[in-house]
């Protein structure tokens, strides 16, 4: 199960994207919208970011193993341009999270990936959060109930 994860190009969002890419099969992309609405896309190649042109993105020419679904993350009030929603011919399911605020973002990402106990714990520690604040439902925590 490969997930395309698209994050805004800011330090905090890149870090979360890289953390996910280190734990799950991930096609990680970062985007930046310029002042005139122009889109810059970078793909994580495992050790460096490489430019991905809009043409290559549209045709899905930039990866070897296609994603099964996509998770797009956007800043509140800064919607991801339609051109960055991956076309249906190379990814079927597409989901969007419209916040970059750490707590709700980790909560929703954890639900999407169905984090196990050690993932919830790892991300909570990593970002200095209580596990219960990012996993209020107590998902995959046996002792919670």
């Amino acid at each position: 199960e490969v997930t395309l994860v698209m994050v805004p190009r800011d330090e905090a969002s890149l870090q979360k994207g890289l953390d996910l890419a280190n734990r799950y099969p991930t096609l990680l992309l970062s985007y930046k919208i310029g002042a005139r609405g122009e889109v810059s896309l970078h793909g994580w190649a495992g050790s460096e970011w490489v430019n991905v042109t809009p043409e290559k993105y549209k045709t899905g020419e930039f990866f070897r193993n296609g994603p099964n679904s996509a998770l797009l993350i956007e800043e509140p009030g800064m919607p991801i341009p339609e051109s960055l929603v991956p076309p249906v011919d190379w990814v079927e399911s597409v989901y969007k999270i419209s916040t970059t605020d750490t707590r709700p973002l980790l909560h929703l990402i954890g639900q999407y990936y169905d984090f196990d106990y050690k993932d919830w714990k790892w991300f909570a520690n990593r970002y200095g959060m209580d596990m219960a604040s990012i996993n209020p439902e107590g998902l995959n925590i046996a002792w919670y109930h």
Binding site: A70, L72, V85, V88, E92, S93, V94, Y95, K96, I97, S98, T99, P104, L105, H107, L108
Partner: peptide
């Protein structure tokens, strides 16, 4: 408010 306010299904098969 629930965090689900930030969650959107853009497309499912």
């Amino acid at each position: 408010a629930s965090d689900l306010q930030y969650w959107f299904v853009v497309r499912i098969p």
